[in-house]
């Protein structure tokens, strides 16, 4: 596979700032959580500048609320655009979800109903955002614990349709596919194999909390075996895609994440050589 990708990266986490600045090429790029740096200054912006000097970066947001029926938040978009001018990221991503209505922010990634109405609504808003940011964006599939009675298509059909009609890209979270498949009883392999590989520009892998009757996407544990298997399938389907490990809580030493990143690298090399 000769397609150029960023390779293997990690999320920039406060706990690892100094270690990352001292690390070598094991981490090929960093993903920043945009909102953590949408502040005026101080330590977050200081470390952002230093890390950016050393690593290619992508910006990953949680507040776009692309599926909300509230108007797009122009203050957020403006701040995001300013940050992007500063960071010069390889790309900007957010989630295929809504985060609140009536001016309230739930600070959660709420799934959309997969309906024609929602599709039309999201596609129009993605186009608006891309016009504003002057670049295509990536949208990530979310983990979900509910699906709606009114849905008319599968999540993967909806995701593909948004990407195609809005001409945006997909950040495929392999862990989220697994979490939702268990919660809703679908075949995760079917989801992965249905995704248009031409649209997939980045992969997330992460850990979750298996509560038996429900799996919760906690990003606080190591990557599960089932997710490693799905990652292999994803490489078989999409080829080599920029891959990163998301760890947001119970953050282990950097060496632990580097080891997991090594596993991802090994799987990719087995599949994509």
């Amino acid at each position: 596979m000769s397609v150029h990708t960023l390779g293997f990266g990690l999320g920039a986490r406060v706990e690892h700032y100094d270690d990352l600045l001292a690390t070598t090429s094991e981490v090929e790029w960093l993903e920043i959580l945009s909102e953590n740096y949408l502040v005026p200054g101080g330590k977050p912006r200081h470390y952002l500048t230093r890390l950016r000097e050393q690593f290619p970066m992508v910006m990953h947001g949680v507040s776009l609320s692309i599926g909300s029926t509230d108007p797009l938040n122009t203050n957020y978009l403006c701040a995001l655009r300013d940050l992007a001018q500063n960071v010069e990221p390889e790309w900007i991503s957010d989630h295929l979800c809504w985060t609140g209505v009536e001016g309230i922010n739930l600070h959660d990634l709420m799934p959309l109903p997969y309906t024609e109405e929602a599709l039309t609504h999201v596609v129009a808003r993605v186009k608006q955002v891309q016009d504003y940011l002057q670049r295509p964006i990536l949208l990530e599939n979310v983990s979900s614990y509910i699906d709606y009675r009114c849905s008319q298509m599968s999540e993967w059909e909806f995701l593909n349709a948004v990407a195609e009609q809005a001409d945006c890209f997909i950040l495929l979270d392999v862990n989220n596919v697994y979490v939702s498949s268990r919660n809703h009883g679908f075949d995760p392999a079917r989801y992965i194999e249905a995704i248009n590989p031409q649209r997939v520009k980045q992969l997330h892998i992460a850990g979750h909390d298996d509560q038996g009757d429900l799996i919760v996407d906690t990003h606080d544990a190591s990557v599960a075996n089932a997710v490693w298997s799905l990652l292999k399938l994803t490489y078989q389907h999409c080829g080599m895609v920029a891959t990163m490990i998301e760890r947001d809580a119970n953050v282990p030493p950097l060496a632990t994440l580097l080891s997991e990143l090594g596993t991802a690298r090994e799987i990719a090399h087995q599949v994509c050589r």
């Binding site: 029926t69 209505v101 309230i104 739930l106 959309l112 929602a118 609504h121 709606y148």
Partner: peptide, 12 residues
């Protein structure tokens, strides 16, 4: 169901 109503109700 209308998307706006669904989101309002679910948030509630």
């Amino acid at each position: 169901m209308n998307l706006a109503i669904l989101q309002r109700d679910l948030q509630h």
